[in-house]
């Protein structure tokens, strides 16, 4: 079985970079987005409608960001952590035929209500525009030390 190495709460340090990768947002990716979320709002599958909305092409939906943000967290800390709160703003739409860069960093490490917690910043950039597409913060709870 594949060995996974995740950071434990004790190993995490404020300022740790937990993600830095790029992803091509192909036309297929945006269609995959519709298929996986069943979000048939036309901005996500109809380029003519997207353009009439002021966006260059069909674009990613809210679920995509939420899912990608959570993935950044669990890629770093493993399946046992609990996403307690995820908050994000979408600043410019990400259309098909673009590329995103994803960055994740630990902002704070603390204990809240007895829970070993970290606060993570995730930002998603549109490479072709050098623009922030999405900024997020996630509060992540680690399992109790005894488990």
């Amino acid at each position: 079985m594949t060995e996974f190495k995740y950071k434990t709460w004790d190993e995490v340090e404020e300022g740790d970079v937990i993600a830095e990768f790029e992803m091509d947002i192909t036309f297929r990716k945006v269609i995959q987005n519709v298929v996986a979320t069943r979000d048939f709002f036309p901005g996500h599958h109809n380029p003519e409608y997207a353009r009439a909305q002021g966006v260059e092409n069909i674009y990613l939906n809210t679920f995509f960001y939420a899912g990608l943000i959570d993935r950044v967290v669990t890629d770093a800390f493993g399946p046992d952590v609990f996403i307690k709160r995820r908050k994000f703003r979408m600043l410019v739409p990400v259309p098909a035929e673009s590329k995103i860069a994803v960055f994740g960093r630990v902002r704070r490490k603390f204990i809240i209500n007895g829970k070993r917690t970290v606060l993570v910043d995730v930002s998603i950039l549109r490479r072709d525009r050098h623009a922030q597409a999405c900024v997020a913060e996630v509060l992540v709870e680690f399992p109790d030390a005894s488990t």
Binding site: N33, A36, F63, G67, T74, D75
Partner: peptide, 25 residues
């Protein structure tokens, strides 16, 4: 549906791909 969503964001989290692991936990 869960797998389709993970496929979309390329999420390799064992919780979604290894039923035995998830059920044990």
């Amino acid at each position: 549906r869960v797998k389709q969503f993970c496929e979309l964001v390329e999420d390799a989290n064992l919780a979604y791909w290894d039923e035995e692991f998830a059920k044990r936990k």
